[in-house]
Amino acid sequence: MAKAIIRHNLPFSDVEYEGVREVHSFLNSTVKTISRNIAKVVVLRLYHDKMEIVKNELQAIPNRICVVDPLIEHFKMIDSFLCDGDFVHIRCANHILNVVVKAGLKTIESAIFNIRESIKYIKGSESRIVKFVECIKNLGLNMNGKLFQDMCTRWNFTYLMLDSAFPYRRAFSNFKLLDRDFKCCPSNDDWVEAEKIAKFLRPFYEITILFSGIHYPTANLHFHKFWKIHMLILEEKYSEDPNIKEIAIEMEKKFANYWEDDYSPIASMAVVLDPRYKLKLVKFCFKKLDPLTCNEKVSVVEDNLRRLFKEYKTTSDVEMVGSNSHGCDGEMLDDVEEFDMFESPC
């Protein structure tokens, strides 16, 4: 039963269901039933047994590998990390983006309220959906995509909701004429404000999708993608639009809690190892942020790389052969168009 609970993500209480116990008794009349607490103990025992097996297998591997909690503390104890494990931990990029964006969106709930409620109202009934589709057809609009409904736990659905609603803005006004109970039809001002917000959120959404890729390496993308987000937030802090300005201010507070302005030493080293960028991109980005601290930050990155290289050189005779990155070739260059023209005095 413990293996079934793990494999099928069943609740521990599953072992106490009368139907389940009847099946077990039918298959074996002498079977002893267990409680949910016993099931929990057995599942945890299986987990710890498997964890020990994984630890032993990883410890026997001679190559350098990437590990995550809770194995990190174990490897520190047996002194298996280079540089005392200083370059092991890196924060989840998409989690940070999620926290940063959600902090900003809390400030503009009223600006997108009517659009959110309109979509919720229309999608709440099959008959309303049919009416809305008729409105789209009568207006000669292309039905290229569905309306996304917002989800409070996932900010990217807020962006998708706004982006999916724009092509049908005339249909919402037309639907209002057919349904007297439709009280939350977005005004022209609502649409104008929503377009500004969606434009601001688009880079966050695109980078989240990029970081979620599984068919190409992503470690070398973090540094300049977070730099792009940081520069966008700093720029929009001075926006003439009060909603965008308020979003950017709240985002900057959260951003500083996680990254401040160095984007983690691991991310900066990873982009240096990308043969398309090397140290020049790090210099370019740091200079854009603050020319006065550029040299100091670049020196830290160089020192970290030398330290890591020195440990590899002294602890391993294995020749390290790199491979070309692929999967995002043309896409990444758009973010740093000025980079090709950059000549750093750093």
Rank of each mutant, 00 (worst) to 15 (best):
M1F: 05
K3A: 00
I6E: 00
L10Q: 04
F12V: 10
G19S: 03
V20P: 01
T30H: 04
R36W: 01
N37P: 07
K40Y: 02
K40R: 06
V41R: 14
V41D: 13
H48P: 00
H48Q: 03
D49Q: 05
M51K: 00
I53R: 03
K55Q: 03
L58C: 00
L58Q: 00
I65D: 02
C66E: 15
E73C: 04
H74L: 08
K76V: 05
M77S: 08
F81D: 06
R91I: 13
A93F: 08
V99P: 00
V100A: 03
N114D: 09
I115F: 06
I115N: 00
S118Q: 09
Y121N: 03
K123D: 05
K123Y: 13
K123S: 09
G124H: 10
G124Y: 02
S125H: 14
S125F: 15
R128T: 10
I129H: 06
I129S: 08
V130P: 06
E134V: 05
C135G: 07
N138M: 14
G140H: 14
L141Y: 05
K146T: 11
Q149A: 12
C152T: 12
T153H: 08
N156C: 15
F157S: 14
F157L: 15
Y159E: 14
Y159A: 11
A171G: 10
N174C: 08
L178S: 09
R180P: 10
C184D: 02
C185S: 05
E193H: 10
E195K: 15
E195Y: 09
K196Q: 12
L201M: 12
L210S: 11
F211N: 13
Y216T: 00
L221T: 06
H222W: 11
K237T: 08
N243R: 03
I244Q: 03
I247D: 01
E250K: 11
E252R: 13
K253Q: 02
W259D: 02
D262N: 10
D262G: 09
P265E: 06
S268Q: 06
M269A: 02
L273Y: 07
P275T: 03
R276L: 03
Y277D: 05
Y277S: 02
L279K: 11
F284G: 02
C285Q: 12
K287F: 08
D290G: 03
E296T: 14
K297I: 13
V300L: 08
V301N: 05
D303K: 09
F309Q: 12
E311M: 07
V318E: 12
V318R: 13
V318S: 10
M320Y: 08
M320D: 12
G322T: 15
H326W: 15
G327N: 04
C328K: 13
C328P: 08
D329M: 11
G330F: 01
L333D: 09
V336I: 03
E337R: 02
M341R: 10
F342R: 01
E343A: 07
S344E: 04
C346F: 14
